[in-house]
Design a protein around this nucleic acid. Structure first.
Length: 719
DNA sequence: TGAGCGTACGCCCCG
DNA sequence: CGTACGCTCA
């Protein structure tokens, strides 16, 4: 018999054993949170004889979910691919796949990723003759998503946007519904709708999920919070784990307040504080504490570790960005010789775009690496094209995939034809596919023949699905659609073809996993997986240096961590320096990065860097200065740099970035009112259109158009 | 009507 | 530096 409490400290045991009633575990970085979660699940199953179907565990990423399943399996040998350990989105997708017909959608719904949503909003805006230069489609999209759940948000939208958002949102939601498509927000919102409107479904799940566990609670948003309450019902066996200092998803609606809200909503909860850190040396922990204590809004925690002081933190500053990359590569090779594995290293950056220079040099120096995020496999054009075919086969109503599939490769049907077809379809309440049958009424002979051929082809693919193997189906679609032929004229055709062949692997893997399902159902699951994982990229390289964003690093640990591009403007990002809340989130991101390191931490940057073809000079990231100097060993060209780059350009740049930082500490209050004429340091003269709380909307001359800005931003001055 | 070419623009994080 | 979009020409 295994002992699930082995090696657990007093607090951790408490968190594992308190299975009944609400429990809030505040878990500092590296405090063994995942062990607690997995052991708690194992304990429920193994010791308390709870069936795994009665446990719901929510993680933040699919990767974390898989890892948790694996660890539970390692502990007690119980596992099942359909265990309810998943992200909010996967869980909702699974519930909806089962019951969505109750709220009027079809079971074959497909999920749109974020890029698709932005594109769709943009195209709707164009159709409605809104100027996409004046109104940034991304901002409109964010509003459209936000008001899905909370209609009252519309009242807080400033005047010129309000109108646009209202109109676009109506059209957008209608189009999604007609095409049987869901966006990520729908997954949650529609699950709430389903549970609210259908008592039997609600009671089924409330009865089913007897024990609920939620990880990374600081990153839940309000909609997710409500969903949790709804799933719980009278059941109070809820266990949440969170750490305010690691909340880094506010841009996506995450609300730190949810932890405090939980305390209020579940007054009888037990509070468990996990403060002992098992990961890092005390030098690293001290640095982390020194950084995070600069944030205003936080409950202070006292992280401690029984590990020794360890090595000093290194700050390396190269003359050029190339030096920085070379330093990282050389250091890795050096440590590798001293006995470290490639797996022990992580290079963490703020923006995905920073990865390229590291990839190049690593490749050149033959350092194996695995890269996470970025243009993931599923976001590549050819993959999206092919999935469009598959989606269309499953869901003939999907106009979005229809357009993608019919346009790649080109088959004599262009924008004009499609517009006409869409208008005709709308007028006669038909789907695009249905409208094709009557297309000769509105279109010329060649266009309507091309459309009919396309439809026949898709219908043929549908028949073939049940007649031939997945492997043959991939080949069949690729050749019949003319896709292969088109790739021959494509410079990157070979690579794209290789990528497409990956579908064979993916399809057959899923076929094995879901043996008891029909081929159509397998395809539905596969497409769902692709949608939910479109942001993640898996790599086949097992032994390699990890390259990833700071965001993606949350929850992971490495013996050696390099946090790179530590420069004002890059990290913290320029944009964040306008607002204290954003800035504090950058600081939490730094905190997350630092606390990933177990033994060695390197902070690197450069004094000269090429960005967008232009040379720029940035000051050291302020986060470096927040660490006590006696913890840091300064290496590299920094002294040389200080002496030799005293030219005016650098001086001026430094002044600019210093001003930006100062602005954070110095409050400027602009007394702005509707109609005021102002000047903006970057956008020039403008007129205030509206002011709501801290925000204002100002109309500038083209090319800037209408901007939504912070009222008190120092760049704005009244005329 | 759609393909090809030149210009403008963007500085992110993710399910 | 790359990509996305718009314009022009075939």
């Amino acid at each position: 018999m295994i002992n699930l409490l082995e090696n657990m400290n007093e607090k951790q045991r408490e968190a594992i054993l308190l299975t009944e009633g609400p429990v809030l575990a505040i878990a500092g970085a590296g405090s063994g949170k995942t062990s607690v979660l997995t052991r708690r699940i194992a304990y429920l199953i193994y010791e308390k004889n709870v069936h795994f179907e009665n446990i719901l565990a929510i993680t933040f990423t699919n990767k974390a979910a898989n890892e948790m399943k694996q660890r539970v399996y390692d502990l007690i040998g119980v596992s099942h691919p359909r265990m309810w350990i998943s992200t909010f989105h996967s869980m909702c997708s699974r519930i909806l796949r089962e019951h969505i017909e109750r709220i009027g959608y079809k079971k074959t719904f497909q999920i749109l990723d974020d890029d698709d949503v932005t594109q769709l909003v943009k195209s709707i805006m164009k159709k409605l003759n809104y100027d996409t230069k004046m109104f940034n489609p991304k901002i409109v999209k964010n509003y459209v998503i936000k008001i899905k759940y909370d209609k009252s948000v519309i009242d807080s939208i400033e005047s010129p946007f309000e109108e646009v958002v209202k109109t676009v949102s109506k059209r957008y939601n209608q189009q999604l519904f007609e095409n049987n498509l869901l966006d990520f927000e729908d997954l949650i919102v529609l699950t709430i709708k389903l549970l609210k409107e259908h008592q039997d479904v609600r009671e089924y799940y409330q009865e089913k999920f007897k024990y609920v566990l939620i990880d990374e609670f600081q990153d839940t948003n309000n909609v997710q919070y409500d969903l949790v309450s709804l799933l719980l019902g009278k059941n109070q066996n809820i266990f949440i784990v969170g750490d305010e200092d690691q909340s880094i998803y506010a841009f996506r609606g995450a609300n730190i307040e949810n932890i405090r809200k939980f305390k209020r909503d579940y007054p009888k909860h037990h509070l468990v504080l996990l403060e002992e850190n098992y990961r890092s040396t005390n030098t690293i922990l001290k640095a982390a504490n020194q950084i995070i204590k600069n944030n205003r809004d936080r409950i202070s925690k006292n992280l401690f570790s029984s590990k020794g002081a360890g090595e000093q933190i290194t700050h390396f500053k190269g003359v050029t960005a190339r030096d920085e990359v070379e330093f990282v590569a050389t250091k890795i090779q050096e440590l590798k010789r001293k006995g470290y594995d490639y797996n022990d290293f992580a290079v963490l950056y703020r923006a995905n775009s920073s990865s390229r220079s590291f990839e190049e040099v690593f490749m050149q120096k033959q350092i194996p690496y695995r890269i996470f995020g970025n243009t993931s496999f599923f976001k590549r054009a050819e993959i999206k094209d092919f999935t469009a075919y598959l989606r269309l086969m499953i869901n003939l109503d999907d106009a979005y995939s229809f357009i993608r599939a019919i346009s790649s490769p080109k088959r004599g049907v262009g924008g004009v034809t499609l517009d006409k077809l869409a208008d005709f379809a709308a007028d006669n309440s038909l789907s695009l596919m249905e409208a094709i049958d009557r297309s000769s009424e509105i279109l010329g002979k060649s266009a309507s023949t091309n459309l009919k051929n396309f439809k026949e082809m898709i219908l043929d693919f549908r028949t073939k699905l049940n007649e031939i193997s997945f492997n043959s189906l991939v080949d069949y679609i690729l050749s019949e659609s003319g896709y292969i032929e088109a790739l021959k004229n494509d410079e990157k055709g070979d690579v794209r073809y290789e990528n497409l062949l990956e579908f064979k692997t993916i399809l057959s893997e899923n076929e094995v996993l879901y043996q008891d399902l029909s081929k159509e159902e397998v395809l539905v699951y596969l497409l769902e997986d692709i949608s939910l994982k479109s942001e993640e990229s898996q790599s086949e390289i097992l032994d390699g240096v990890t390259l990833m964003t700071l965001h993606a690093a949350k929850g992971l640990e490495f013996r050696v961590v390099f946090i790179v591009t530590m420069e004002m403007g890059l990290f913290p990002l320029n944009r964040s320096m306008m607002d204290r809340k954003d800035f504090e989130e950058e600081r939490r991101l730094m905190y997350v990065g630092v606390t990933r390191a177990k033994e060695l931490l390197y902070l690197t940057n450069a004094s000269v860097r090429q960005t967008y073809g232009e040379t720029s000079h940035n000051e050291d990231s302020c986060f470096i200065r927040e660490i006590n100097a006696n913890l840091i060993d300064v290496k590299g060209y920094s002294e040389y740099v200080n002496r030799s780059f005293q030219n005016t350009v650098i001086q001026r740049k430094k002044e600019v970035s210093r001003t930006k930082l100062d602005n954070l500490n110095q409050y400027q209050e602009n007394d702005l009112n509707k109609g005021d004429k102002i000047t903006h340091t970057k956008f020039g003269d403008g007129v205030v259109i509206s002011v709501v709380n801290d925000n204002c909307v100002i109309a500038f001359a083209q090319p800037h158009g209408i901007k939504r800005l912070l009222k008190d931003h120092p760049a704005i001055s009244k005329k």
